[in-house]
Design a protein around this nucleic acid. Structure first.
Lengths: 219, 219
DNA sequence: CGCCTGTGGTCTACAGTGTAGACAACGGTT
DNA sequence: AACCGTTGTCTACACTGTAGACCACAGGCG
């Protein structure tokens, strides 16, 4: 026995299991957050999900914070930046970028706050930013301006995804009270509840993309 | 003695202290988060800051989640919605609303994530939304459209404040590495570092506000 | 073959968390 | 004076992240 009488039992001893890798850990963490929510996530539960002692994770990841960084990067990588319509106009590229970011985030509503609360510094994220700014430079925007535009769009998209995720998850437990208060308020409140909470994304995206002043005769 | 030999000691017995109120608790919580950061916040520290047993707080606030809800509402109340330029155009009102929201959030960078991760349902917040939508209706936008516009603007502002706060706080400990990598990347990376991380807010705000299609001949 | 060494999983332990539940001090009412 | 509801206190429990010692094992070496 391996000190805990585990050999020969149902729990796989370490020989039977594929060895832990950083990537498999990150994938398991994201899956766990997706399934049970961020609040129930813990290193101990992650270890259990992996069939491994909780401390084993620390051989591959510095600490929980670093794990969350990696989870955020994994979500970003779902964007598949390489397949964006780079041959199109900067508006097309920007809009598609934002749509994909939004979709990736809303595919993981429980993890959106993880993503939103840390800067993403992965290679793919930086490359994406660089390519976008290059595209904007071709369109006549100097790099500083391009950076500003990219930031504006990312921030809108992030704020949108975060708001929608928070609202959807919050709606599960709280505020399911019809509120038969003042009729004037109720019309709007009910309209707000009736309206899909995310059908305005394209409106705001188009507004912002079209609202940037064109760069006339740039260097 | 009051069971712990506290009477007559240096710690004030409950007679000497102003009684705890929900508002004073919320204010102390926000001050503590501002001062030490969200990571170091705990109910026990809050109790200590108030000179009170940690469990005393629970007489006034259901749990930590409810306390954070209240903190978020307190931040929102700094907007002073009543003093917005309601007599101006909807664009003026909207822009000033967003500016104040942004300023209030960045006044509490450690609490921005608290604000961002929950829907605000306080009276002042709902009233603000209703007034904005009313203003937009006067300008010819039907309520559904007005709601969408307000959401777009709020989400951009929230995403912006969150990104800036995260970046500023993260910059303190990590990523202070000059990164003498590929020169092409470096130009942009350094430009990004050199540029103030928040000087694009007005650009995006104006773009979005001006980018919404005007409602011609509305009911 | 035996031995060493480094990698990776395990176990224990510690300091800290949110909060339920019993208790006690107090102000106000009768 | 007796009572009672409110508010602060204390204890206790289940849980967290993670440091540090330990051990199983693979591979390289004699």
């Amino acid at each position: 026995m391996t000190r805990k009488g585990r050999t020969g039992g149902t729990a796989p001893s370490r020989r039977d299991r594929a060895p832990l890798t950083r990537d498999s850990i990150v994938a398991a963490a994201l899956a766990l957050i997706d399934a049970d929510g961020l609040a129930k996530f813990s290193m101990r539960r992650l270890g259990a999900a992996l069939g491994v002692d909780p401390m084993a994770v620390y051989r591959h990841v510095e600490d929980q914070e670093a794990l969350f960084d990696a989870v955020a990067e994994a979500i970003f990588d779902e964007l598949q930046v390489a397949t964006l319509p780079w041959e199109g106009t900067w508006r097309e590229v920007s809009q598609e970028y934002c749509r994909r970011l939004r979709d990736a985030l809303l595919r993981h509503p429980n993890a959106v706050t993880v993503f939103a609360t840390r800067p993403i510094r992965s290679r793919t994220s930086i490359d994406a930013g660089v390519k976008m700014i290059d595209k904007l430079r071709e369109a006549g925007f100097p790099p500083g301006r391009g950076l500003q535009i990219v930031r504006c769009l990312r921030e809108y998209t992030l704020g949108h995804a975060l708001s929608v995720a928070v609202l959807r998850l919050g709606a599960a437990d709280r505020s399911r009270k019809p509120r038969a208060g003042d009729p004037g308020y109720n019309v709007l409140a009910e309209a707000a509840d009736a309206t899909e909470a995310d059908d305005h994304f394209e409106l705001g995206l188009a507004a912002m993309v079209n609202g940037f002043p064109p760069e006339e005769a740039a260097g």
